Simulated assay, not measured.
Amino acid sequence: MTLATLAAVLQPALKNGYAVAGLVTLGWEDMRAYVAAADAEGVPVILQAGPSCRAHTPLPILGKMFRHLADTASVPVVAHLDHGYTFEDCQEALDSGFTSLMYDGSQKPLSQNIDETGRIAEMAHAAGISCEGEIGFVGYAEGATSKGTDPEEARKFAEATGVDAMAISVGNVHLQENKEGGLEEERIRAIEAVTDVPLVIHGGSGVPSAQRRKLATGSKICKFNIGTELRKVFGTALRDAVNRNPDRFDRVAILSEIHDPLAAATRVVLRDFGRSVPAAQ
């Protein structure tokens, strides 16, 4: 079994100069392809259940799916709650076998965010698992505007909450479909100068690959969340599979054709973040 906590995969990344992918899952087909890709590349992977995933599949089921995939993998697999907005979300994920909780209090006043995230971190650590928090606010490509992370607030947040990883807002946005943007490296350097907590980039799909590679190996950013980039691959592969034979109705047959293109695209993404062990041959 290779089930791991977030801290167990991010601390070696911080020490050895690489990052780990947090891959946003929506169902069995994508999470299975993600683990296959990580196995093939010989790198750890973080399977993430965000709000849209949880709306489709209950957390107790997702926990069993993640843990089953970890049982079959040769690399560390983290079962991660992404954007838990309430204590109930986090408690249910903990009870469902998740090994990492991300509490998102980023739109609340700093003192409230620190207090609530700290309580989640305490709960997680008491259970032997990890906690990620967010300081600043990472907005959405077609929605709420980001609020950049203030380095001094980041220092206070990291020290007061005891989180194992800290998501920051440095030019990244969720659901960005192109890579025309980029991260604010000056702000990143100011944040990492005042904390040793592994840093997290949400909305990693919108970050140019060259910058992902640079920061993965040359900063304290140890986790990039990737969702939109691979969802687009899934959607294209699904459309192609359906269109190859419009009369076909068996979804198992159709979905079986998604695995290989999605796993191949995931391997390309994983190569942006460096390696913790040699790739499988």
Rank of each mutant, 00 (worst) to 15 (best):
T2S: 04
L3T: 01
L6C: 05
Q11P: 05
L14C: 03
K15H: 12
K15R: 15
K15L: 15
A21S: 01
A21C: 10
A21E: 00
L23P: 00
V24M: 03
D30N: 12
R32I: 06
R32H: 09
A33D: 02
A33C: 04
Y34S: 03
A36C: 05
A37Y: 12
A38S: 11
E41R: 14
V43Q: 06
P44K: 06
V45N: 05
A49Y: 07
S52L: 14
C53N: 10
A55G: 06
A55R: 12
H56F: 13
H56Y: 14
T57I: 15
P58H: 13
R67Y: 10
H68V: 11
A70C: 08
D71N: 13
A73T: 08
S74Q: 12
V77E: 06
H80P: 02
H80Y: 13
D82E: 12
G84P: 03
Y85H: 11
T86V: 11
T86G: 01
F87W: 15
D89A: 03
C90G: 03
C90N: 04
Q91C: 02
S96H: 10
G97R: 09
D104C: 05
G105W: 13
G105E: 00
K108P: 00
S111I: 06
I114C: 02
E116Y: 14
T117M: 10
G118I: 14
R119Y: 10
A124Q: 03
A126Y: 15
A126M: 08
A127K: 15
A127F: 13
S130C: 06
E132H: 07
F137S: 00
V138S: 04
G139A: 04
G143V: 13
D150S: 07
E152H: 15
E153D: 13
R155F: 11
K156R: 15
K156C: 09
F157Q: 02
A158G: 01
D164E: 05
S169N: 07
Q176M: 06
E177P: 01
G181D: 01
G181T: 08
G182Q: 10
G182K: 15
G182F: 12
L183Y: 11
L183Q: 03
E184N: 14
E185N: 04
E185W: 10
I191P: 02
V194F: 11
V194R: 07
T195C: 00
V197N: 00
P198N: 05
L199F: 11
I201W: 10
G204Q: 06
G206I: 07
S209K: 15
A210F: 14
R212C: 14
R213K: 14
K214C: 02
G218A: 08
K220M: 06
K220C: 05
I221T: 09
C222G: 05
K223E: 02
I226T: 04
T228S: 10
T228A: 06
E229H: 13
K232S: 04
V233M: 08
F234A: 01
L238E: 02
R239V: 07
R239P: 01
A241L: 11
A241V: 08
A241I: 07
P246G: 02
D247C: 00
R248P: 01
D250T: 04
D250I: 01
R251N: 09
V252W: 14
D260H: 10
P261F: 07
P261D: 00
A265C: 03
R267Y: 10
V268A: 09
V269L: 07
D272C: 15
F273C: 00
V277D: 04
P278L: 08
